[in-house]
Each structure stands twice: as C-alpha cells, then as structure tokens.
Design a protein around this nucleic acid. Structure first.
Lengths: 151, 151
DNA sequence: CGATATTGCTCAGTATGCTGACTATCAGTA
DNA sequence: TACTGATAGTCAGCATACTGAGCAATATCG
C-alpha cells in the first residue's frame, strides 16, 4: 500500500465525487436543479406508483432517515405528492406529479450524458468492465452498509 | 439504461457507501474512532510534515472548505497540531503529534483489512482490474470536481 | 511604489448519510 | 383480547461535500 491514494476506499470516494460533480453540471446546464439522489428517487417513484418510503429506500439503497429529507425536497418542488396510506396509517404513499413527470422526461438526456462523461477516460469495453466489477463488488458487500438494496 | 441502479453514477454511490461502512466497522472494531477522511488526512500530514491546508486538500482531493472541519476534529482529538506559518501569515502548518503517530501505527491493520473487505466479492485479478479502471476514469475526470487532486 | 490579482482560510447555507432514540401503528401469539 | 415484537416514519446530532461570499495577506505588474 505505497500510496494512500491507491487504496480502493480512496478510489471509491474520488469516483463518486467526480460522478456527482458531472451529474450536477450536466443537469444544471440543462436548466434543472436536481441532485443525483433526488433524480433516482423521482425515477423510482414514477416506476412504482404508490410505494411507501421504506420500500423506496430499499429500491435505491438509501437510509430511511435520509430519504425523509429527499422526499421533503421533492415534494417542496412539486415533483411528487405524499399522502397517508389507507391500509397502514404509519405509511405514506408516494406519487409523482405531472410536473414531476415532465421534469423527468426533460432531464433524461442530461442524465444520460452525465453517465457517459463519468467514464469518458475509458473505452466502451473498459467502461463495461468497470460497471461489471462494481456491480459484483457491490453485490458482495450489499449487507455491509446500513442501507442495503432490497428488491 | 433499463435500470437506474445500473448507471455508473449509482454504482459509484453504492461502492462508496459500502467502502465507508466497511472502513468504519473495521476501524471501530479495532477500538478507534476515525473516519476514512480523517485517516487519509492524518496519514498525509505524517508523510508531509508542516504542509498547509490547501496543499493537504490538493494531495487527497478534498474541498478546501471541507478540510477545515476535518482538521478541527483531528486537532480536537490531539492527533495533529495546527500552528501559524512563519513564512506566510495566512497559512497554517500542520504537524502530526506523537499520539497521532501512535494511532496511525495501531490503526493500519484495520485499514488494510477494510480495503480487502471492500472488494471481497472479487478475485485478486478482478480487484486489480477494478482499481486500474477506477484510476483511469478518475484521472480523466480529475478536473471536473471542485476538489481535484494536485500533486 | 501602488493598484490589482491571487491565495489561504473561514463562514453561512444546503444536501447527503449515518447513529441512536422515539412515537405510532401493526402483526403475531399466548 | 392483551402482550410482545416488529415496522413506518421522524428527529437530534454529527461528519462529509459543495456553493458562494468574505477577510487578510501575499504576489505581480505597470
């Protein structure tokens, strides 16, 4: 371990740091003010209408205490609605609004361009390899974080 | 882009999330209370005695506004000392303390074990491939974040 | 030398992400 | 049905990260 900057942990942090910066830049240039986390939540709510917060958190591997704030901000922006579940009075059902749908549609090109930019130093094959290895490492470590993916 | 969870940005976030959790668990089990960020800063200060905050930030790619708090906490724990530079009255020179040196020495096995755990789903060759691809992608995107690496 | 630009650091504000604790509610069982 | 445990959500507190602003000191250049 000659260099601390060569450790997996450091590389993970750097890659995430760049990924977020690229995402915010692309989406910002397109005229939107949405974070990667907010985007993933919004897209998942659209794909799973009426889901509750815990389920949403599991689908994108967020902590349940973090998702509260994310949902607050999405609702504040008018992109989603949060209403009490008729079946479980503890739960809240999440629904995307028309405005949320419109935003999601218009933002998609910027999001996709950001994904390409993040790996712009790699060939297509290298990018695919990277994603495959990341998926494999993540699958093996899924239960190690407080907010694992739940399908 | 069938699944949002398959996008590079999401994989970056997940891998980082697991890396931090593994680091904190290993280091915590060893009896220490140090974050990945604090560890990297401490190790870099030890390797570059008397460096100033901006240089430190550049060496580990932290934002200059973030490093203030990290240094505060390291100093609070007695692991480093921060004193005015005699050459530049704006700058502060950072120095590791004996306590910091001791902590760094005792914590190293846990840190290394954490690095292995992060990629425990991968073969040795796969882990090496992953790190090579991450390094390459990061090198190409270095200037895209507000806190690039500066050597 | 003096005006200007740059640099080192800090601060306020916002957004993740986590720990741990708490309330309200639901589910299973004795 | 009453007790017990689990679950949905929130909150306070702490630690990264970043934006943008500002202050003090240094560097640069006409």
């Amino acid at each position: 371990m000659k260099d601390n900057n060569d450790m997996p942990g450091h590389l993970a942090r750097r890659f995430q740091q760049i990924a977020v910066a690229v995402f915010l830049a692309e989406v910002g240039d397109a005229g939107f003010d949405l974070t990667p986390v907010q985007y993933a939540a919004l897209a998942t709510i659209k794909a799973n209408p009426g889901l509750d917060q815990v389920t949403l958190a599991g689908l994108i591997a967020y902590d349940r205490t973090t998702i509260t704030g994310v949902i607050d901000r999405l609702a504040q922006k008018g992109l989603i609605e949060r209403r009490a579940s008729p079946r479980d009075r503890r739960a809240r059902e999440l629904e995307i609004t028309d405005e949320g749908r419109r935003t999601l549609r218009k933002i998609t090109p910027a999001v996709e361009s950001a994904q390409r930019l993040m790996v712009r130093g790699l060939s297509a094959k290298e990018a695919e390899d990277l994603m495959r290895l990341l998926r494999k490492a993540i699958a093996a470590g899924n239960e190690l974080s407080r907010a694992p993916l739940r399908e």
